[in-house]
Amino acid sequence: MTITTHAQHWLFDLDDTLHHAGAAVFPMINEYMTRYICHYVGVGRTEADRLRTDYWARYGATLAGLQRHHGIAPQHFLKQTHPMESLLPLIETGTQLPLWLKRLPGRKWVFSNGPQHYVEAIVRHLGIETQIEGCFGMDSFGFTPKPRVAAYTSVLRQAGIHAGNCIMVEDSAANLKTAKRLGMRTAWLSHQCRKPSWVDWRITSLFDLQRI
């Protein structure tokens, strides 16, 4: 039985799944976050870098730590650290992605820890907005990041879909672990040879989904 036989709904991560963010986009966002922490938390650059990475590792998102420990307003932080006029020119377009998504059976959704304005802008920039049923950025699920269960249940409820009818596609194995616990099928976009027990399929390219 093929992977597409199971899929009524696809939940796609955005960064480093639907587009490559690691080379240019993430470093720029990290720089904006470090500057923000310096200014609004009132620490030096070295400490700001440490807090940014520590909160991301501990809570799944830097914002979660800044909210918990420093009372940072989430909307202000996300707007200041994700300026689309600077980020969009770094994201490659003109790929096979729009046509490939059109040919992939099932309904498609984007589920990202990025802010809503960022997710929607990149989906438009990639030219895939007509293939996507809906976009879910962190604003839309209460600023509670993946891999926390509340983020997934909020998205499923808003989309009106059942976990058992979903395949989640992610570059983060940790995020897929929660998806599997909730009853989803899981596809891990990774070049690692070994896959965790909660991953149903390991792929090295999105286009592998139709060939499994």
Results as ranks from 00 to 15, higher is better:
4 T>F: 11
165 N>F: 13
200 D>W: 12
22 G>W: 07
139 D>M: 13
200 D>G: 08
45 R>L: 09
8 Q>G: 11
117 H>T: 12
182 L>F: 01
120 E>M: 14
164 G>Y: 08
34 T>G: 05
189 L>T: 01
158 Q>F: 04
182 L>R: 01
122 I>L: 12
89 P>W: 03
201 W>T: 05
204 T>H: 14
119 V>S: 11
99 L>S: 11
80 Q>C: 09
181 R>L: 10
85 E>P: 13
204 T>W: 12
127 G>Q: 04
151 A>C: 10
102 K>A: 05
51 L>I: 06
159 A>Q: 01
80 Q>E: 13
159 A>L: 05
112 S>A: 10
59 Y>A: 01
111 F>I: 05
31 E>S: 10
66 L>T: 01
209 L>Q: 04
38 C>W: 02
102 K>G: 08
90 L>R: 03
182 L>K: 06
83 P>L: 08
15 D>Q: 09
76 H>A: 12
153 T>Q: 05
127 G>H: 08
125 H>A: 06
73 A>V: 02
104 L>Q: 06
141 F>S: 09
51 L>N: 01
29 I>L: 10
192 Q>C: 08
79 K>Q: 14
135 C>L: 12
125 H>N: 05
197 S>K: 15
156 L>K: 05
74 P>T: 03
156 L>N: 03
202 R>T: 05
23 A>T: 07
147 P>E: 06
189 L>Y: 05
32 Y>K: 14
88 L>S: 04
8 Q>W: 13
149 V>N: 09
134 G>T: 15
9 H>T: 11
188 W>K: 00
193 C>G: 13
178 T>H: 05
191 H>G: 11
42 G>S: 02
209 L>D: 02
210 Q>A: 14
135 C>D: 14
136 F>R: 04
126 L>I: 03
67 Q>D: 07
64 A>D: 09
28 M>S: 13
62 T>F: 02
132 I>G: 14
129 E>Q: 15
194 R>G: 07
119 V>K: 06
24 A>M: 12
22 G>S: 15
5 T>W: 15
73 A>D: 11
27 P>K: 00
203 I>T: 08
166 C>F: 13
119 V>M: 07
42 G>D: 03
165 N>L: 14
154 S>A: 10
63 L>I: 06
188 W>C: 00
155 V>K: 04
29 I>A: 10
211 R>E: 15
168 M>Y: 08
118 Y>A: 10
119 V>C: 09
72 I>V: 09
118 Y>D: 13
153 T>F: 03
203 I>M: 06
145 P>K: 12
160 G>V: 07
175 N>E: 02
48 A>K: 02
79 K>C: 12
25 V>A: 00
58 R>W: 10
154 S>N: 09
163 A>W: 07
2 T>Q: 13
